[in-house]
Design a protein around this nucleic acid. Structure first.
Lengths: 233, 233
DNA sequence: CCAAAAGTGTTCGCTCTACACCCATGT
DNA sequence: ACATGGGTGTAGAGCGAACACTTTTGG
């Protein structure tokens, strides 16, 4: 087979920015890097793209290696290609972010990597340009969550409205009036009220809800305030 | 220097989706591909990332090669890495989209590439996965233009409100009431009314406006309808 | 019985939308 | 004089924001 001769070939990596929510604060899953350079320092989970896999496959493989999870919400964020970003050898990195239900995270698998959850407000120094990746991931999540219901990916199947509100307050670093909040989320038609309650957070207990998946997929694309009647492409 | 041995290295390309607006319709700048495979077929302008350049530098270089323009609005869109996307050899491509003032496009430079502007509604078949890139670029532009004033990048320094409205109508494929439109854009405080008029479009003539750059940069980040008082990160 | 969190409705202001007429001028 | 596109104001509806009290129950 003919090739594109004389062109530079380079290393391509995937790094995963893995977010979780424990009911109180947003968290980030980091590992201790196992090889040089920066061996032993806190890092995003990553790996090199293999010859026969797509970028999405690569990201899913890397995520599963660390967490044991499949079918997770995973979205390509941005590609970082500064020639100096890795001092060892030029490596271009495609960053993905993942939103996972922290309760599903399987500890035993991660022990290989000495992984730990960090509060987003107390993350350690990261290697290379990974702090930039993290900042951009947070921006993207806000941007997207402002119009699309992605934050449900961080919650268990059954969740309460106060939990959901805390999550939004974390992500946007603000406080929201609970009456307005519950009106709004209920008005979307995305939630189904269940019969039982979560008694962990209070004596009275808060009703559990789950997603109405039909409406969820149907409304996922609904945004566009500025322009009346656009076609959706 | 130590290296990451045993890892696959691969080709990395940048492809540019170049949009322009002629006052009537949105257009896309394509070239005739100059080498195999798919030689002679319509393609986005692209090139390989060189050993010593960042991705942004690469995209700017490629855009300048074709159009002669620098300082253009250029944004990384997405990275495409299916192992089969280029039949010759595995090539991962980082797509960028550009918004240019079509009047500034310099014909003589592009003659090397047999470039042509196509109406967005009448684009030819594109090579590889470039149709997907184009579709995604259009989506991104809508998404972003719904909240950020990026479409001004497609207009000359001096433009009229009817021109601006036509542009929005093209991008969102809809029609907008002109009274409401002009109220809205004027309310942003982004426009400065000039003394002279454009007499090309009508006998009466339409006032020229230009961007108020202070307000432009200040308001560029203003969106976020869903959440009150977020901090902007 | 008291503390702590859950749940719920109304009012007000503002923004978005719908809608129609006059203006300027080149032919 | 008329045809063409430019420019402007208002009224009504719907949405988002502010705001306080009652309920439940474990301790």
């Amino acid at each position: 087979m003919l090739k594109y001769s004389k062109q530079t070939r380079l290393l391509l990596a995937v790094d995963c920015i893995i977010f979780g929510f424990d009911g109180e604060v947003l968290k980030l899953l980091l590992i201790k890097r196992g090889f040089q350079p920066e061996k032993g320092n806190w890092s995003l989970m990553g790996g090199f793209v293999q010859a026969d896999e797509s970028l999405d496959q690569s990201a899913n493989r890397i995520l599963k290696q660390l967490t044991g999870l499949e079918g997770v919400y995973l979205e390509q964020l941005y590609t970082y290609g500064d020639p100096q970003r890795d001092p060892m050898e030029r490596t271009v990195s495609v960053a993905y972010f993942a939103l996972i239900d922290i309760q599903k995270y399987q500890t035993q698998i991660s022990s290989d990597y000495q992984a730990e959850w960090f509060q987003l407000k107390r993350t350690p120094k990261l290697i290379f340009d990974q702090q930039e990746m993290l900042d951009q991931a947070r921006k993207r999540i806000r941007y997207k969550a402002a119009m699309h219901p992605i934050l449900f990916e961080l919650l268990p199947t059954k969740f309460t409205i106060p939990q959901l509100q805390t999550l939004y307050e974390c992500v946007f670093n603000t406080t929201i009036d609970k009456r307005n909040f519950s009106k709004r989320v209920l008005a979307t038609g995305l939630l189904i009220k269940l019969a039982d309650k979560d008694k962990a957070g209070s004596k009275r207990g808060a009703y559990y809800y789950q997603l109405n998946m039909q409406n969820y997929y149907a409304k996922f694309q609904a945004f566009m305030n500025f322009i009346p009647n656009p076609d959706t492409l």
